[in-house]
Design a binder for these strands. Sequence first.
DNA 1: TGTAATTTGGGGCTCGGGAT
DNA 2: ATCCCGAGCCCCAAATTACA
Length: 223
Amino acid sequence: MNDLTSETTFADAPSIIDPGLDPGHPRHASNPTAAALSLLDLHYEAFYDVEPFASQTGHPVPMDTRGWSQILASVLSGINGLARQKGADLADGSDVKGANTWKAIDTPRFNGVIKAGTKALTSDKIESLDVMPHLYLVLWDQTIRDTARCRIWVVRPQHDVLFRGICTNWYDKRTADEISSTNFQLHPPRRNDSNVIRNSCGNLEYPLYFCADVPTAKANVTA
DNA sequence: TGTAATTTGGGGCTCGGGAT
DNA sequence: ATCCCGAGCCCCAAATTACA
């Protein structure tokens, strides 16, 4: 077990940004930020508790970034998941994308950010963005200060002109056969403190919705 | 100083897991 | 059967560094 001391928990993290939540949203806890930090501590502990076993047995560390990201987004936003339906991740139609660089071999990125190549009516159409109030981009990485960090940026696909422009650009390239992939990827600012999220169709810069980090005293950090 | 070697980052694609 | 998802693998081009 990691006997995490008070200095090594997200709950006492040196930098926390309290997200500006939409007014009127229900909340899961009286203090969503504190709840999120508890969740992050659990995630960090689970990851680095199992990591030695994975390492010794030559297996990848079980992560389930998708699940942790979705729960975290729900805790912070107050919007639950859709328990038993296909489609969106959150009940209001919002989507959550996650990526984790901890012990990663390749450079993690947000995969399949917009709908393409499926049989859904709005697939490959900009209209697919019109039913998505928010798009949460959740990134776990390490900082140059040897801290483990979790950051979230939030896109408003219905309103953000730049984001819609990038998506239109990408969809157009697919129509024109310049892009055959159905996987629209965004590259997060891994390791550095930038808020620029990149794609060759255009770059995005968003303010942080949430950020917390914790010293990696026990973690053997490898970029 | 020009060229070769290496690093870095973006992107396509696939795999395995999970769900409906 | 279909859809969704994130990570890994491979490839390529640009940028950077090493070296003659």
